[in-house]
Design a protein around this nucleic acid. Structure first.
Lengths: 141, 141
DNA sequence: ATCCTTATTGAAAACGTTTTTCAATAAGGA
DNA sequence: TCCTTATTGAAAAACGTTTTCAATAAGGAT
């Protein structure tokens, strides 16, 4: 199911700004702020309004096509989401973000905490920070 | 080494706003935004300027006494940097925050992700959201 | 291909948060 | 107690994000 259909099924339309935001995110492999997405759209000679970037990011996030990521300094970072519930390891130095899968350990943890505290848990926030392989090498030199 | 000495050693001074921010953070054990720290200082009849809250948080973070944390919606959250790393379950309804311990599962997870991605991980952000026992009962009625 | 409805856009204005500026204040060593 | 200067608070500036609204264009219907 492509973007066009996914939008139309919800009574939404495939517009120029939406295509541009998607292709900018596809080209970049690091989380981008709304500002820098807008910047890159201009550099690509695809003028779209900053306001539309914000609106499009909200929409794409809701559709699950894009995921919001918290950088160390920049709070509003967006990356393309691969399907399923994923989390990111973010590099402290170059801001590269890598997704990882297999959250059985978290499910176990959730169950234990529910039993331990009596809470029912329906959501969690999990993110790791460190150094990516490339930046590790740079530091060693 | 107390706060007073730690500040004076660096040519800094122990002032009223700094004491207030510290005691607000000590009283709350969940991440607080600059705004809500300010709010709580007013409620405690300890009027300090919002500007000083910002400046004090920067300072305390630099001194390593406070740590910045990214919340789900609110990006600027600050907690006391206690040596023992702990996490919270936060109630969606009444905001109650309960600490839980025993993070062996997370250590396992960290090791697996390090092996899987090649990153070295030195920090993580983990928080759970749900309903506390009291609010669960209320919902059932 | 054209029309028609309405989702969507972009510019401006509104908004909230964070930072800067600067004169007045107060911390703490002499 | 004095003196230096780090620090404060209020106002203004700067910044990022959201809202408003008339104009536009997407895409189903004709």
């Amino acid at each position: 199911m492509n973007l066009q259909d996914q939008l139309n099924h919800n009574g939404l339309r495939l517009t120029h700004p939406r295509q541009v935001v998607m292709s900018v995110l596809e080209a970049a492999n690091i989380p981008l702020s709304p500002q820098s997405i807008h910047q890159r759209s201009l550099e690509a000679q695809e003028e779209i309004g900053l306001v539309s970037v914000y609106r499009t990011l909200d929409l794409l996030t809701e559709l699950g096509l894009v995921r919001r990521v918290h950088g160390h300094e920049e709070c509003q970072g967006y990356v393309l989401a691969s399907p399923g519930h994923h989390h990111h390891v973010v590099c402290r130095q170059c801001e590269a973000a890598v997704e990882f899968t297999g959250m059985e350990d978290v499910s176990l943890l959730v169950e234990r905490i529910q039993a331990q505290t009596g809470f029912t848990i329906d959501e969690h926030l999990l993110q790791f920070y460190g150094l990516c392989p490339a930046c590790q090498e740079e530091v060693e030199r």
